[in-house]
């Protein structure tokens, strides 16, 4: 069995999450990074982090629709530089820093939302690597 990923709710530890923010439709405003502290006890997998951020700061764009059950492939993001299906990414106790960027290989709509119908690279190498 892997490490038990769920900390006790009393655990005050936090995970530092850096999020790449960008709105391509706002001319002149370049991409920037924003930092968040996410309570460990609230997140068992990466999908929980996305939901937590969206509720804490509703100005962030993440896709609000997902299956939570490892099939839809709609919750993909770049996690520490690599494409990951966020519902399939457990966060064990060793995780202290997370960097989130929109999934590579697709046109960015805003922040972590990409247009899955608009691939920017010829093949979906990013996802092939992740085993989609």
């Amino acid at each position: 069995m892997p490490n038990h990923p769920v900390s006790s709710p009393n655990d005050e530890a936090t995970i530092r999450v850096r999020v790449r923010r960008f709105d391509p439709q706002t001319n002149g405003q370049p991409p920037y990074w924003q930092d968040f502290q996410v309570p460990r006890g609230r997140v068992a997998r990466l999908l929980d982090v996305l939901q937590y951020l969206q509720q804490e700061d509703p100005t962030i764009a993440t896709r609000p629709h997902f299956c939570r059950d490892l099939v839809c492939n709609g919750c993909y993001v770049n996690y520490n530089g690599k494409p990951r299906m966020s519902c399939m990414t457990p966060l064990n106790a060793r995780v202290t820093d997370i960097t989130l960027e929109p999934l590579q290989g697709y046109r960015v709509i805003r922040d972590l939302v990409v247009d899955f119908l608009d691939k920017t690279c010829g093949n979906s190498a990013a996802e092939d690597e992740a085993g989609v």
Partner: peptide, 13 residues
Amino acid sequence: AKGAPRRSGTTNL
């Protein structure tokens, strides 16, 4: 579709 076609909806589930 209000989401991303193929990657949204309950059919997948």
